[in-house]
Nucleic acid binder design. Sequence first.
DNA 1: GTCTATATGGCGATAGAC
DNA 2: GTCTATCGCCATATAGAC
Lengths: 205, 205
Amino acid sequence: MKKLTDASTEEKILEAAKQVFMKYGLYGARMQDIADTAQINKALLHYYFRNKEKLFDKVFEGALSKFFEVMDVFSNESLPIKKRLFIYVDNIIDFYSEYPQMSMFIIKEIGNNPEIIRAKILAAKKNKTIRLVQVLEESIKKGEIKKLDAAMFMINLQSLCSFPFLASPMFTYSLKSNGKDWTKDFSTDKLKLAVKTFVENSITK
Amino acid sequence: MKKLTDASTEEKILEAAKQVFMKYGLYGARMQDIADTAQINKALLHYYFRNKEKLFDKVFEGALSKFFEVMDVFSNESLPIKKRLFIYVDNIIDFYSEYPQMSMFIIKEIGNNPEIIRAKILAAKKNKTIRLVQVLEESIKKGEIKKLDAAMFMINLQSLCSFPFLASPMFTYSLKSNGKDWTKDFSTDKLKLAVKTFVENSITK
DNA sequence: GTCTATATGGCGATAGAC
DNA sequence: GTCTATCGCCATATAGAC
């Protein structure tokens, strides 16, 4: 979490908005809450970003471009598939620990107005081409990955990396009921390890 | 989706509420939307269920008891761990294909008011005791599952089974961009197979 | 640019006729 | 039980002083 005191008003707002939107979602988030977090007046939010939706979009755009940076590892053809997958797992989990609700946002936004999202994504990814599924297909053909549909492999991978961040309230709850303290036990390092274990077991080399 | 025309007003409301709450969540859902879906007047919602929260609770209770029925397979001590895991995967995926937004539903409710949820869960699961984590721990000790934190194994499992239903708009979108037709290709059977493949690879026997 | 005060609108909830 | 009309709150958004 960035310090909010030594930044420009605009930066303070964006950082506060990121925190609050990520915690409560677009509808659950309150402009007053964002203003309080940024330690500025509520009217300033509208001065800088006109309205709630535009402010949300700014946060969303920032997240998207980071997302595509992370995906870029799959365009590095020189690395072996296992190495690329492991780097991807590390990077995407770091990304989600900064934007825990990001996958839910993308999901909802895509469901609501796919054309707008398509434009935003095209703008964010610029010249980068994401070929995750193609890369996986080639690896499966070459026998580097155990026989499994490439699309399903990708879905499994995304599930393993995304869901724990969405579901952390549930795990906190259910593990506490089992006498575990999730907040104390959980770390992104543990998650990275767990995901890599599952992924590695489904790869031959 | 049940037919709404040939049902009692109370049933029509509950079915409509289920649909709308599932789609938009507690805060995102609009009473007017529920009334329109049920094809009745908004005031009737309050006549039958007093307020929004109580209506939501009714929907939630129905969901919870179904959920615990599925979890019950882990209390069957006579089956080997692999068999239990596979049955669980089949059942939970069938459950989510009927209630695709259920995990998000539970996650949000737990995040908002955990104490109330704790009471509801205790009421719903009645005499049933869920020991998923304990069962996994024992299996890891016995060497039936490759060395991995039991809690993390459970999280991986939940991720694999839940996330694809939450994220189906995203996969539809991204696979379409790759020239695949997800809606045509995807089936719960494929997902069951993919999850079992990942799980099996992380089990020794 | 930043603030206080206020307008505007949406939504949950209620009153009361039928 | 079902409806129309309306209340009251709260969150977004704006006006206008400084």
